[in-house]
Amino acid sequence: MAHHPNLDAELRAGVEQVAQMPGIDFASLTYEALAEHRAQLNAMMAAAPRPLTEVSIEDRLVPGPAGAPDVRVRVYRPAEPGANRPALYWIHGGGMIIGKPEMDDEMIVRYVERLGLVAVSVDYRLAPEHPHPAPVEDCYAGLAWTAKNAAELGIDPARLAVGGASAGGGLAAATVLLARDRGGPDLAFQLLICPMLDDRNVTPSSRAFADAVVWPRSANLYGWKALLGDLAGTDDVSPYAAPSRATDLSGLPPAFVDVGELEVFRDECIDYAQRLAQAGVSTEFHLFPGAFHGFDMMVPDAELSRRARAAREAALKRAFGI
């Protein structure tokens, strides 16, 4: 595949190395192949070494949405006992169709170690077996449990943030909208990393990256179709499925939004960050030049990747007052 001329040189070198390794081909997504893709991801996670850490990692089953199964959450806590810690409620990515909390263990452990926070990561149901609203309702149920059990978890309820990456970033934005519209839980911050926000796929960037390094246009169309079925791209899509559909962004917690220059989500993220600011929501936005979707995960040692991680961590520190 020919790379975009704007691709960061260090990321380009990393991509060429990673290209020699087995991975999931997002460009080949089909309903028939989805089970194989999931199995491949699960095998990769099973083979990955467990993070070397003293952070406590515990899985729990918590009440799900009304009439739905319980939801698994993964709770990460510092080794030292403590109370009134800041908390990050995390939602993993995977295009609405793959993934589980374990895929982000290393990143979440790093936040817990460096910031002294408690993290709760939700294992929401996946499309297409579980279309909207199942994923976001699972995310909201896990958030409600986290807030309700803040004292037991050692969490300061006034310092509870919601975050996610990619599809998880879109679900984080949607969960924050639900929390506002349902009267709680109160949230201190939203951390939206390259979020998947708009099912319409009509922006210039949504059309430009048919051959993206990660998550090309075809995969994005597939993910939204899995979540929304025939409603995808129509006028009947809820903002709790596609937050770009929300017309009122006022009253939301302060936000951090970032995205790469060379990815499908670029323009919808720019628009969402701008509309958050216009609605009176204090918003920090980063457009990383020469970067593709998930660049910091694929090439973690690149200077741009280090800058991205530092910016997110600094934003959480400011939000939590630490």
Rank of each mutant, 00 (worst) to 15 (best):
F265I: 02
R275Y: 11
A310Y: 01
D296T: 02
L316K: 03
G280R: 05
E261K: 01
R306Q: 15
A277E: 13
G294N: 04
E284I: 08
Q278R: 13
Q274I: 10
K317A: 11
R306T: 00
A302Y: 08
F295S: 04
A319D: 08
D258W: 04
V259Y: 08
E313A: 01
F285E: 10
A273L: 11
D267H: 06
Q274C: 09
F295T: 04
L262N: 07
D301F: 10
D267L: 06
V299I: 13
F256R: 00
D271I: 08
S305T: 09
V281Q: 04
F295L: 05
L287P: 05
A310E: 15
V299C: 13
G294T: 07
D267F: 02
E268I: 08
R312D: 06
A314D: 15
E261T: 08
V259T: 15
D258H: 02
L304N: 02
P300D: 07
A277C: 08
V281M: 07
V281N: 00
H286W: 09
D267M: 08
V264L: 12
F265N: 05
V264T: 15
A273K: 12
D267Y: 05
F285W: 10
V259R: 06
E268D: 13
A315Q: 04
G280C: 00
F288H: 14
G280Y: 02
Q278V: 12
A255N: 07
A310V: 06
F292Q: 04
F265Y: 14
F292Y: 10
K317G: 13
R307K: 15
A319T: 09
A314R: 15
Y272S: 04
A302Q: 09
D258V: 07
A255F: 02
D301G: 00
L276C: 13
A255G: 11
F288Y: 15
D301L: 10
S282T: 14
E268W: 09
F295R: 07
A315D: 07
A311F: 03
Q278L: 13
E284K: 01
A314P: 06
A255R: 06
F295W: 11
A319V: 09
R266W: 04
M297V: 14
A308T: 12
S282N: 10
E268F: 10
G294R: 01
R309P: 00
D267P: 09
R312M: 08
D271E: 14
G280V: 07
L287S: 12
A311I: 00
S305A: 15
V257A: 06
M297Q: 14
E284N: 00
F288D: 11
D271K: 09
A319S: 11
F265W: 04
D296N: 12
R266K: 14
F265M: 13
P289N: 09
G294H: 02
F292A: 05
E263V: 08
